[in-house]
């Protein structure tokens, strides 16, 4: 036991590193003379060392899962909100896709309901019936695209025919040498537009390459 109550207070102050240099010096001088205080200090140091030696116990392995399972259930919409916040590209992709669909489906109907025909040759556009007629004996070389109308083929076509938002009617199959395509559904239309766009890009890039090669 320390020699006096005051000195016990000093020992704790010393252990807590709360002494000034002068106080430390005075305290150490006292310790050197007083074996009771020295012993007391030693015992406290040992106590500190033993206490600090207590190892750190770890939480059980399933601890986090257990607690997470007990949290109040979140509504699914909120989970989505967080998932979307975590992955913003999902919104970007969804928005882009939506815009893409809207713009194309509005283009599906075309500009108004007028019949539009793309191709060279002699044909008759019957606006009242909504039919493009290729009369008998006529010959069309090259591809033909008809939008917003049916096509009636009596003559001959050497090339492909694409009918958007319409049907084709003809006397016999061997009047057309290429393929006949009818596009009446938005999905078909989308596919057609995408294909056309991509082939344009490819064509554009290959012509550019050719130009580059020529320049070189």
């Amino acid at each position: 036991m320390a020699c006096s109550k005051e000195n016990i207070v000093l020992i704790h102050k010393y252990l807590d590193n709360e002494m000034t240099l002068l106080e430390i010096k005075q305290f150490q001088q006292h310790i050197n003379k007083c074996s009771d205080c020295e012993k007391h200090l030693q015992e406290l140091r040992k106590t500190e060392a033993i206490t600090q030696s207590a190892s750190h116990v770890k939480a059980p392995s399933n601890f986090t899962e257990n607690v997470m399972g007990k949290l109040p259930k979140q509504p699914a919409s909120q989970k989505w909100k967080h998932r979307l916040r975590k992955h913003p590209f999902m919104i970007t992709a969804a928005t882009f896709f939506l815009v893409f669909i809207i713009s194309l489906s509005s283009a599906f109907g075309g500009d108004g309901n007028d019949i539009v025909v793309k191709g060279d040759g002699h044909f008759i556009v019957d606006e009242q019936r909504g039919v493009v007629v290729i009369p008998e004996g006529e010959h069309i070389s090259g591809d033909l695209i008809v939008r917003n109308g049916d096509i009636e083929i009596a003559g001959e076509v050497t090339g492909s025919i694409t009918v958007i938002n319409g049907e084709h009617l003809m006397a016999s199959a061997d009047q057309v040498s290429g393929e006949i395509e009818e596009i009446n559904q938005v999905m078909d239309w989308l596919w057609y537009e995408t294909k056309a766009f991509l082939s344009e890009v490819v064509a554009f890039m290959s012509t550019e390459n050719e130009e580059n090669e020529e320049n070189n």
Binding site: K58, T64, M68, L71
Partner: peptide, 17 residues
């Protein structure tokens, strides 16, 4: 809620100890 599990992984051992 999922963020809370990250928080738990940081502090669970200390709290438990």
């Amino acid at each position: 809620q999922e963020a809370f599990s990250e928080l738990m992984d940081i502090y669970k051992d200390k709290v438990y100890h």
